[in-house]
């Protein structure tokens, strides 16, 4: 057990180094390669409040916020996946499955197609706000429908089933909106549904960063509780866990984190599913290890995927959702097949 805890620490440190490294690397490479001196002088000039050159501005206003946003969004999705898989005792769950991401997608689609008729206008904040509200509303609907029988063994399964149904409903709403949309609007919907980080700016970084960091720290406090769910809610209760309260907190943490992240970058699938699995293969299912490490691995993977998305068809970009799937799926299947790993 001591060996295992040490292994957890080593994995955590490695992931920390990798994540810091990918921030720098992904800030350097793109359609235009920046050298390290540009990066240092940009940071220096920011603090000295001096005027930056074009390359320095590319680094400071485009590249750096983008790679940081990637890391925070990846964190939110991966930790969300860890939390929901643990809570539902089910390894095939993605963090958006209880309506959050499809609701956000519906909100975004509504904005793209009917946005001109909205009474509400908050400038560049309009899309994130509408998407976030969409995600929260859809999740709220899931809770309302499934919440009537909020106690008992089946409540969790019911929540999941209602979530899947509401997901399907939201996605058909998105489909309908794309169908009636004009061409550029339909393209916006498609791009948003596959995730895009091209809109990254410092406001997005701070919003997603603060919300995610705070929620991950909060989630860490529930790692022990989440472990006890592995034998079922009945056993968790017998082990002294206030099941309903813990369930509510974990769901809230997940919903807030995922809807804020999704609001800024669109729907990015697969990160929330694959990261907890990769870590379980490496060193087991203890959530005290899974939660912090999935935050880092999620951040690293998404930043790496974004780098690939920018470099693969440079100077154009691939939607990041395509990259996460193309790279993620084969690795995932390979690992599953190679290991005598039982989830």
């Amino acid at each position: 057990m001591k060996a295992k805890r040490n292994k957890s620490r080593i994995i955590f440190l490695c992931l920390l180094v990798l994540t810091l490294l990918i921030i720098v690397v992904s800030a350097r490479y793109g359609a235009l390669k920046l050298d390290l001196n540009t990066i240092f002088s940009a940071i220096e000039k920011y603090f000295l409040n001096e005027k930056m050159s074009l390359n320095e501005r590319i680094f400071f206003n485009l590249r750096l916020p983008r790679s940081l946003l990637c890391v925070f969004v990846g964190m939110a999705l991966a930790v969300g996946g860890t939390l929901l898989q643990g809570l539902f005792r089910n390894p095939i769950i993605e963090p958006g499955l209880i309506g959050t991401s499809s609701g956000a997608a519906l909100g975004a689609a509504l904005y793209f197609v009917l946005g001109v008729y909205f009474k509400f206008n908050a400038g560049e904040w309009t899309l994130p706000i509408v998407a976030c509200v969409g995600g929260l509303l859809a999740t709220g609907v899931v809770f309302l429908i499934s919440g009537t029988k909020s106690t008992g063994k089946n409540s969790t399964i019911e929540l999941l089933l209602v979530g899947i149904a509401v997901n399907a409903l939201c996605l058909s709403g998105v489909g309908f909106l794309s169908y009636i949309a004009r061409d550029p609007q339909a393209r916006s919907i498609t791009f948003w549904s596959m995730g895009s980080l091209s809109g990254a700016n410092w406001i997005a970084v701070f919003t997603v960063g603060i919300v995610t960091s705070f929620m991950v720290l909060l989630a860490l406090r529930y790692a022990k509780h989440l472990n006890s769910f592995v034998m079922g809610e009945e056993e968790a209760y017998l082990m002294g866990i206030n099941v309903q309260k813990v369930k509510l907190f974990i769901l809230l943490i997940n919903i807030i984190m995922v809807s804020v992240a999704t609001a800024f970058v669109g729907v990015i699938s697969f990160v929330g599913l694959i990261v907890p699995h990769l870590l379980r293969i490496l060193n087991g299912s203890d959530n005290r290890y899974l939660i912090p490490c999935s935050a880092l691995l999620g951040g690293f993977l998404l930043a790496a995927a974004d780098l690939v998305a920018r470099l693969a068809v440079s100077p154009a970009e691939l939607p990041i959702g395509i990259v996460t799937s193309i790279i993620g799926v084969p690795i995932f299947i390979l690992l599953l097949k190679r290991n005598s790993y039982k989830y």
Partner: peptide, 20 residues
């Protein structure tokens, strides 16, 4: 018979008894 949804080691399971 208690079934687990994810892999835990024997020692981790016994340690869960100390959670309260």
């Amino acid at each position: 018979s208690i079934e687990l949804s994810f892999a835990f080691t024997v020692k981790e399971i016994v340690l869960m008894g100390r959670y309260p």
